[in-house]
């Protein structure tokens, strides 16, 4: 059980690194586009499009890590003013709601990806990317979110995953 918990946390963290690499890749691709277009007169057919996919990927892969490190913004008006017991209950409700949202996002995300795959939708560009590929980030990110919220529920109101960086 403990090992599964640790593995899950590690998985979320490595997804976070992957998200970071996607942001780096976007930076490099966009920079390359600028140089290639403005100084060599050769705009690329791929930089803009792949950058957009990469940033979508970085959001869905990174959002579970943001949950685990309490980087998602909360409004602290009331939570800071109630006693520990109430705060604990609030935390359970919130993580439960987060889990519910993630489950819906994941399930319907999978259905959406499957439909895109079945229809054979491709991007309206020169790359003709099968659109189910970038859309796959949604259910993958959704599964990571589900794991993150389950870990939070196990933690109770202790910020175990949080603030370690």
């Amino acid at each position: 059980m403990n090992r599964l918990y640790k593995f899950s946390d590690l998985l979320i963290k490595y997804a976070g690194y992957l998200a970071g690499i996607l942001i780096f890749a976007t930076t490099l691709m966009t920079f390359y586009e600028v140089i290639s277009r403005s100084f060599f007169g050769m705009p690329t057919a791929w930089a803009t499009e792949l950058s957009t996919y990469a940033i979508i990927g970085s959001c869905f892969l990174g959002t579970a890590y943001a949950v685990r490190t309490y980087a998602h913004i909360t409004v602290d008006l009331l939570v800071n003013r109630v006693n520990d017991a109430a705060r604990r209950i609030f935390a359970y409700i919130c993580n439960g709601l987060g889990l519910l949202f993630s489950a819906i996002l994941t399930w319907y995300g999978f259905k959406h990806v499957f439909m895109t795959f079945e229809l054979g939708v491709i991007s309206t560009s020169l790359l003709r990317i099968p659109m189910y590929l970038p859309e796959l980030f949604i259910p993958i990110g959704g599964v990571l979110l589900i794991i993150a919220f389950i870990l939070q529920l196990i933690d109770g109101n202790v910020h175990k995953g949080g603030d370690h960086l």
Binding site: I23, T26, T48, S51, T52, I55, I56, G109, K111
Partner: peptide, 26 residues
């Protein structure tokens, strides 16, 4: 109506101008 959720979630970020945000954060 939940079938719309992934469509909107994807399209919310499907905008090249939005890529500037993570890069400025970096």
């Amino acid at each position: 109506a939940f079938a719309q959720i992934p469509i909107i979630a994807y399209s919310a970020l499907d905008d090249f101008t939005l890529t500037a945000l993570p890069m400025y954060i970096l």
